[in-house]
Write a protein that binds this DNA or RNA. Structure first.
Lengths: 122, 122
DNA sequence: TTAATTGCAAATGGTTTGCATTGTT
DNA sequence: AACAATGCAAACCATTTGCAATTAA
């Protein structure tokens, strides 16, 4: 994988966003650096960046997946139902392995809080 | 809303499944009672059953939403990465409101454990 | 008979892919 | 030259919708 300007711009967008971004949010942010950048390219580059381990997928309940830079400490997210943005939160309340049914093997977990972010609260 | 045979079959499918079902799982189950039942009808009826409050949507991270009968105690789910089925778990480890950023209003939360269910564990 | 429900096919929206072109080494 | 990366259009898949035909109250 070559580190092209487009991939650089995508990583920059994720870095500057300070929160997980959807593909269309990445497109919007990267478009400011590279006019005419294509959504297919965003998807393809996000995929290869994930395979390479530079970026992780954030599966989001009831909405499309977001992407964020890899290497952050384990944490969870807040989904604003008003503006649709996903935010990072710090820490994790536990492993939750105890509530899994007997015989089920827990590999990971997703915790998402939903509500209204501070910008959208009147 | 009229209680047709199709709607009856859909509710029966959700009841008998003992776990949240995807639209295509509902189709498969309802087809045994009503041959030729259409997927559009499944979607339309699920929607009206949700509006009526008989059924709730279970938004599932990284996968399409599932549906389950309303009225169950607050609980969370386990997604088997092998067979794709979603299972109910009992109880909830907490409110999690404490980890939300300042100024954010929490309305609800989704907790999903991922891994391998007992049927898929070797 | 009146209004809700259904099947079918077409539309939609997000994501992926084929292919010819462009860019990098 | 050899191969990776891109743009574009078409394919895809889950979900929704328009409409004419059917069914329930």
């Amino acid at each position: 994988m070559r580190m092209t300007g487009q991939r650089r711009a995508i990583l920059d967008a994720l870095q500057d966003g300070h929160r997980p971004l959807s593909p269309s949010e990445v497109l919007e942010a990267a478009s400011e650096a590279i006019a005419g950048i294509n959504l297919s390219t965003i998807y393809r580059n996000l995929k290869s960046l994930v395979e390479r381990g530079d970026v992780i997928v954030v599966p989001t309940p009831g909405d499309s997946s977001r992407y964020e830079l890899a290497g952050l400490a384990h944490h969870h997210h807040f989904l604003c139902e008003q503006c649709g943005r996903l935010f990072d939160m710090h820490g994790c309340p536990g492993s939750f392995a105890g509530i899994a049914p007997k015989g089920f093997k827990v590999r990971s977990h997703e915790l998402t809080l939903m509500g209204t972010c501070s910008s959208c609260t009147p």
